[in-house]
Design a binder for these strands. Structure first.
Length: 499
RNA sequence: GCCCCCAUCGUCUAGAGGCCCAGGACGCCACCCUUUCAAGGUGGAGAUCACCGGUUCGAAUCCGGUUGGGGGCACCA
C-alpha cells in the first residue's frame, strides 16, 4: 500500500486566507488520520505579486492554528525540511524547464508566437459569436522552418500544451464520477510564459508528480481545472493522484468567500481574540461533520476522526455568530495560566490605546478569572469587560448613574448611604464579597429601595458601566479604597444634576 | 455564452429506501436562575427535505427532467 502524501500549496500573494487555512486543515487531518505525510509547498511563481511578508503571514498563521507540516519550509525565508525539496517553486525552475523540454521534444507541447493583440482579437471574436473562449490553434502546426524564422527574428514563444481530444473522467472522492470533454477546456493552454516562467497548472502537476502526492484535496474552484491536470500527469508519464474537491466557503450571499464581502484574513481573526482551538474546530465543521451530534472537537480529536466520506458537497456560508459561540466554548475550557497568557497582548493593546492606565500582573488577572472567563466571547472583549479596574480617572456618565426608577436625589442618597455602609461595616483587611452583600441588601430594604436599583447605582458609580461581572466580586477586585473613592466621585458628579 | 458542480429549518448540519409528517447546533423568542451582563437549565417558533415526474408496497434518501445557486473557462494562483 502506497503512503498517503497530501499537500497544501499556498501562494504568497496575500495574507493567509480562511479558505486556504481550511484546505490546509483538511489535508492535515487527512494525513494524520491515515498516517500519511502532510507537505507545505509555496507557489511563488507569480513573482510580481508574491512577497516575503505574505509568506511570513501564511506560515505563522498555519503554525498558530497548530497545523504542522512534515515537509516544507518551516518559516519565511527559512530552511526547507524533507526529502522532496526544495519546496519553493521558484527554486524548482530546472524541474519545470526539464519537463517543458520533455513535452516539447515529444511534441506534446509547442511554442506559440501569438501576440497579446491576436489573442485579444480571438477572444473578442468568440465573444461576438457567443462562443466560449478558446485558443484557435494558430501556432499548433507551424513548420520547423517557420519556428526557426520566428526565433531568428528574436521572437520567443510561450509553450502550449496540446490538449488531446476525448473525454477526461475521474472519480472524485467527494463528488463521485466526473466527466469533462477535453474539447471544453478552451483549447491548447499555455504552460510556460514567453519569458520562460512556468504557469500554475503546469507547476502544480510537475510538483505533485515529483513529490509523489497521492491525494489532491483542494477547493471546488479547481474542479473544472482537474482535466487539465490529469492530461498533464499523463503526458508526464506519471500516475494520476486521487482528487477530493472540497465545498467552497461562502459569503452570506452564497458567492465564493471574498475579502470584499467577508473577513478572510486569519490574522484578523487572531487580532479580534478568536482562539486557535475555536477556529480549527469551526473550520473543520465547515463542510465536514462527524456524522454524529458531537461538535466541540480539538485538533487531536479531529485528527482521529476525520474522513472524506462525511465531506459535504454543497458550499457552506461562513457563520461568524457560530464561530463566536464556539470561541466562547473554547475560552471557557482554557487553563487559567493559558488564558492569562493569551489575554496579555489584548491588555497591552488596551494600554497602548489609552483605554486603561496600567497593566494588571498575572496574579491579579488570575484572581479575576472566575468572573471573567465565562463572560468572554472573544479575548479582545477583556477591556470592555473589566478595563474599568485599571483606569485612574473614572468618570461615569451621570445619565447612566441614575437608575430608571430613581431620580438624581435618590441616587445621591443611595450612593451616600451605601458608601457609609461599606465604610462602616467592612474592614479593609476582610474586604470580601460575602461581607459586602448582606448590609447593602439590608440598607435597600430599610429604605424601601429595590435592591436592583441600589446595586445598579453602585455598579455604574464604580465601573461606569451597566453591564459588569457580579457587583460584589467587582468591588472586591477594585478594593476598599478605590470603591469608596469612586462612590465619592459619583456623588460629586451627581450634585450638578438637577432633581 | 459554454462546461462542470451543487440543492434538508435564516445559518452549519444528521440522514446512505421503512427507525423521519425529518434529529442536533448557532441565531431568535419565552421561562427558570438572578444585583446587571454572561454562563447554565427548560421550553418554543423555524424545513410541505427547491419543483415536477418516475422506480418501489414504501423516497429526504434511487433515476430523469425543470428551476435556482455556485464555480471554472488568462502568457493569475
Amino acid at each position: 500500500m502506497t503512503e498517503t502524501r497530501v499537500r497544501i500549496a499556498p501562494s504568497p500573494t496575500g495574507p493567509l486566507h480562511i479558505g486556504t487555512a481550511r484546505t490546509a486543515l483538511f489535508n492535515y487531518l487527512f494525513a494524520r488520520r491515515t498516517g500519511g505525510t502532510f507537505i507545505l509547498r509555496l507557489e511563488d511563481t507569480d513573482v510580481a505579486r508574491s512577497t516575503v511578508a505574505f509568506e511570513e503571514d501564511i506560515l505563522t498563521g498555519l503554525h498558530w492554528l497548530g497545523i504542522q507540516w512534515d515537509e516544507g519550509p518551516d518559516s519565511a525565508g527559512g530552511e526547507d525540511r524533507g526529502p522532496y525539496g526544495p519546496y519553493r517553486q521558484m527554486q524548482r525552475r530546472e524541474r519545470y524547464d526539464e519537463a517543458a523540454r520533455d513535452l516539447l521534444a515529444r511534441d506534446l507541447a509547442y511554442p506559440c508566437y501569438c501576440t497579446a493583440e491576436e489573442l485579444e482579437a480571438d477572444r473578442k471574436a468568440h465573444e461576438a459569436a457567443h462562443e466560449p473562449p478558446r485558443y484557435v490553434g494558430r501556432c499548433a502546426n507551424l513548420t520547423a522552418e517557420t519556428r526557426a524564422a520566428k526565433e531568428a527574428s528574436g521572437l520567443r514563444g510561450a509553450l502550449r500544451f496540446r490538449v488531446p481530444p476525448g473525454v477526461v473522467a475521474f472519480d472524485d472522492l467527494v463528488r463521485g464520477h466526473v466527466e469533462i470533454d477535453a474539447f471544453n477546456l478552451g483549447g491548447d493552454f499555455v504552460i510556460v510564459r514567453s519569458d520562460g516562467t512556468p504557469l500554475y497548472h503546469f507547476v502544480v502537476v510537475v510538483d505533485d508528480a515529483a513529490m509523489d502526492i497521492s491525494h489532491v484535496i483542494r477547493g471546488e474552484d479547481h474542479l473544472s481545472n482537474t482535466p487539465k491536470h490529469i492530461l498533464l500527469f499523463r503526458a508526464l508519464g506519471h500516475d494520476v493522484p486521487a482528487f477530493a474537491h472540497l465545498p467552497l466557503i461562502l459569503n452570506p450571499d452564497r458567492t465564493k468567500m471574498s475579502k470584499r464581502k467577508s473577513q478572510t484574513a486569519i490574522s484578523d481573526y487572531l487580532a479580534q481574540g478568536f482562539i486557535r482551538e475555536a477556529l480549527v474546530n469551526y473550520l473543520a465543521l465547515l463542510g465536514w461533520s462527524t456524522g454524529t451530534e458531537e461538535e466541540i472537537l480539538s485538533l487531536d480529536e479531529l485528527s482521529a476522526r476525520f474522513d472524506l466520506e462525511h465531506v459535504q458537497k454543497g458550499g457552506a456560508v461562513f457563520d461568524r455568530e457560530r464561530l463566536e459561540w464556539l470561541n466562547g466554548q473554547w475560552i471557557r475550557k482554557l487553563e487559567p495560566d493559558d488564558l492569562i497568557e493569551r489575554l496579555e497582548p489584548f491588555l497591552q493593546r488596551e494600554l497602548d490605546a489609552g483605554r486603561i492606565d496600567r497593566l494588571p500582573d498575572p496574579e491579579e488577572l488570575r484572581g479575576l478569572l472566575p468572573i471573567v472567563q465565562e463572560r468572554l466571547p472573544r479575548l479582545d472583549a477583556v477591556g470592555d469587560l473589566v478595563g474599568f479596574l485599571w483606569v485612574d480617572d473614572l468618570r461615569p456618565d451621570p445619565a447612566l448613574l441614575v437608575p430608571k426608577r430613581w431620580d438624581a436625589a435618590t441616587t445621591r442618597d443611595g450612593l451616600a448611604t451605601a458608601r457609609e455602609t461599606i465604610a462602616a461595616t467592612v474592614g479593609a483587611v476582610t474586604f470580601e464579597a460575602d461581607e459586602l452583600e448582606p448590609p447593602l441588601r439590608a440598607l435597600a430594604e430599610a429604605r424601601g429601595w429595590k435592591v436592583g436599583d441600589l446595586f445598579m447605582a453602585i455598579r455604574v458609580a464604580v465601573t461606569g458601566r451597566t453591564a459588569t461581572p457580579p457587583l460584589f466580586d467587582t468591588l472586591v477586585a477594585l478594593g476598599r479604597d478605590r470603591t469608596l473613592a469612586r462612590l465619592d466621585r459619583a456623588i460629586e458628579l451627581l450634585t450638578d444634576v438637577p432633581g
